[in-house]
Structure formats: C-alpha cells, structure tokens
C-alpha cells in the first residue's frame, strides 16, 4: 500500500516538476536514470562490470541524432532505431566478451569502447571533434510537435518510465532469476545444465539497447551528440552513479543518477573544485555506505522492521 502511495506522489512530482525546475536539467536526469538502470542490469543483476558502457550511450546519441537530422525520421523512430542499433552492438560485444568474467570482461569492453570512439571520430557523418550539432526535435509520430522544452519533457518522461518499467520486468522475470543465479555462482549454473554465456549475451543486448535509448533521448534534449558522450569519463560517471545509489537495488542507480546530475549542476560554479568535491563524495560513500544510499536505507528499514 505504502508503495502505491509513494508511486502516486512520485508521479505527481514528475508531472509538475518542469514548472519549478529547468526542464532541460530534469530531462538530463531522466536520461541518466535510464542509462544507470541499464548499467545496473549488467553489474547489479548479472555481475558483469562493463568499463566501456558509455559506448552504447554515446553511439546511441549519434545514431538517434543522425536519424532525426539527416534521416528526417520522427522522434519515436529515432529513439527506436538507436535502441535497436545499440542492442545489436551489445550482442556483438557479448559474443566477443561473454566467455570471460571479472576483470577480463571489464578490459575487453573498455577496449571495444575505445575502438568505437575512434571509429566515430573518423566516420564521415559524425563531424569529428565538432560532433553532431543542431539536432532537430522531430515531431512525434510525424504530427505532434515536441520542439518546446515542456512538451519534450513529457515525452522523455513517458519514454523513461516505460524504459524503467521494462528494466523492472527483466529483473523480475524468469530470465532475471537465472541471471541473478549466474551472478551468484556461475559454475553451479553450468552444472545444472545452463550455458551462462548465452544469458550474459542476452543481458548485454538488452542493457545496450536501453543505454542506446538513453543516448538518443539525450541527443534530442541537448540537441547535440559529441565524442564526450562515449568517453571513458562518462563510463566512469555511470559507475559512480550506480555505486552511490546502491548496486543490485532497483531504485539505487536511479537515485544515484539524479544525485550526480544535480551535484554536477550545482558544483559547476566551483570550476575545477567540482571534481575534487565529487571525488570526496565518492570516497565517503565507498567507505561508509558500502551498499549505496538506497541499499543502506533498505537495510536500515529491514533492521527496524525486525526489531519491531
């Protein structure tokens, strides 16, 4: 019951928020919430540390942006196209890397992301260092105008809610149960007749698709897609978001994404000090909130229930 009340409150807040807060900032938060969830699917539920996760986000931004600017597609098709293209890339990355675990998986994904980075630096349609600029916000279904910040906000909100619901569905599906079992004990799953790579490849495909969607949304929000989006810096930021909020909890990385985006926004005025402050926050979380903010909160509530 409390859950439904909480969801209702959240829904109201989300609907009226753009009247009080700058919509672009809110939409950036939503994009990173989806992106952080896709990362959580891999690390929190499949135990796969992807060190180059920004490749799906950044390349998704390029593809979504290109589809709207050069392809003249409507916005929902651009989102869909980016998600599908990134799912395909995730599948290929999975084929190459899924047999490896731990640090090897991390390094292979990092290497592939660097490769994609240079590919996009050199590709003719990306405009090199300049990136894709002045990406238009195409009409929804070719008819509904979403070029204003406010109307785009409601579209991005709807798509983000759908994406996070999809993430929730994956985690609480028969496949999600198998995935968590593989995370806990891969060898045992193999001895029970499962082929773990296949499940990891599927997880990577789904996660990459979600990250690609997040990237395409970001391209429509900021109307720009640059190499920065797929840089190692963004890959690192997403790890920070997930750990800050709490891995393997559904809401953790979502909360983490919101906090980090807000923190970055507020700290921008301090210039270079921003990174130092961010680093300190990270250190405190790692040392004192090992389960992340949401993870610690859940543990605290559980203890209180147990005592009562």
């Amino acid at each position: 019951m409390t859950r439904y009340i909480l969801l209702a409150v959240l829904a109201v807040v989300a609907l009226i928020a753009p009247f009080f807060v700058y919509p672009i900032l809110l939409m950036t938060i939503l994009c990173f919430m989806v992106f952080a969830s896709s990362f959580n699917l891999l690390l929190g539920y499949a135990g796969l540390l992807c060190f180059g996760h920004a490749m799906f986000f950044g390349a998704g931004a390029y593809i979504g942006g290109w589809l709207m600017k050069e392809g003249g597609l409507s916005i929902e098709l651009a989102f869909l196209g980016a998600a599908l293209a990134m799912a395909a890339l995730g599948w290929v990355v999975g084929l190459i890397s899924a047999r490896r675990g731990g640090i090897q998986f991390a390094m292979i994904t990092l290497a592939i992301s660097q490769f994609i980075y240079f590919l996009l630096l050199r590709a003719p349609f990306t405009h090199g260092e300049d990136g894709l600029q002045r990406i238009p916000r195409s009409d929804l279904f070719g008819v509904v105008d979403v070029s204003s910040n406010l109307s785009l906000y409601y579209l991005v909100l709807a798509v983000s809610v759908a994406a996070i619901w999809f993430f929730y569905r994956i985690v609480h599906s028969p496949f999600g149960e198998v995935l968590r079992a593989i995370r806990d004990n891969e060898g045992r799953m193999e001895s029970l007749g499962f082929v773990p790579e296949r499940f990891k490849i599927l997880a990577l495909t789904l996660s990459a698709g979600l990250a690609g969607l997040a990237g395409a949304m970001k391209a429509s929000v900021l109307q720009i897609a640059t190499l920065h989006d797929l840089s190692f810096h963004v890959s690192g930021t997403i790890i920070f978001m997930a750990l800050l909020g709490g891995l393997g909890t559904l809401a953790g990385p979502i909360v983490g994404a919101a906090l980090v985006v807000l923190l970055t926004d507020h700290l921008a005025q301090f210039g270079e000090w921003a990174l130092i402050i961010q680093g300190s926050v990270f250190l405190v979380v790692i040392l004192f909130f090992r389960r992340g903010l949401v993870g610690e909160l859940q543990a605290f509530l559980k203890r209180r229930v147990a005592r009562a």
Partner: peptide, 16 residues
Amino acid sequence: VALQSNHGTAYKFWRS
C-alpha cells in the same frame, strides 16, 4: 532456478 533448466522459461525476459 534449477527447475527452470527443463522448463523452457529461462530466456523469457518479458514475462513476469
């Protein structure tokens, strides 16, 4: 999860 080994649901990420 072990029972799923012979149940054909293991890849169904879209089902509850």
